[in-house]
Amino acid sequence: MAKLLAPPALSPRSLAVWGRNWLVWRKLALPSILANLADPLIVLFGLGYGLGAVLGEMDGMAYFAFLGAGFVCSATMYAASFESLYSAFSRMHVQRTWEAIVNAPMTLEDVVAGEWVWAATKAFAAGLCVLAVVAVFGEVRFPTAVLALPVIVLLGLAFAALGLAINALANGYDFFSYYMTVILTPMLMLSGVFFPIDRLPEGVRAVATTLPLYHGVSMVRPLLSGELPGGWPGHLSVIVAYAIVGLYLAVVLTRRRLLR
């Protein structure tokens, strides 16, 4: 039990796990980047321009800009989740890649850490792609927008950690649809991506303020429109807390699954 809860034993070679995934991704880089760009482009056009024309402004900004900032965060969330759920599960369970790695002088923690940083890297790339699309349409203000980049990184780390914890509990790919449907989709609706959360009933709003995506949106949106977000230390701490607790949970649950 003590061993199960012990702090992770990490080596710098955990980066080799990242390197392995990078090498695989490089072979499929072009379609992956195109998908990362095309997806937000299509949805932003449809909702941003279409719905935006009806709605006009939202919270004092063009709906396109409002929604664009939200999508930067939700794209980060989904990319981190897909990578740490479906892709990590393939490597852990289906291809036995993790099994091969721990036969080398690597620990399970090295593997989890490498996968964590990798999923966050892909999430960062996805968020950056949306940000680029929004910027091309002139709805991103610099230099404050540069400060959104570390927020995207942290958001990716938080969702990657949560995904890896869920991954350690999964008995098959179907298990992830529960997480997607029960956790991520409601989070998408409640976190101020499509509309400000002050439109929500008070009880629901209280729930929304516990969600990492909400705190990401609360920082990224002002930063993209040229303002510094109020209350940023609070927002930042919630995301960092999710990342740290999530990672520790992922390590403990993965140990419980594979080290016994």
Partner: peptide, 12 residues
């Protein structure tokens, strides 16, 4: 280690 089940990287 030569494990019992194939764990080679199919993408490589």
């Amino acid at each position: 280690v030569v494990p019992q089940f194939d764990s080679l990287d199919p993408d490589f």
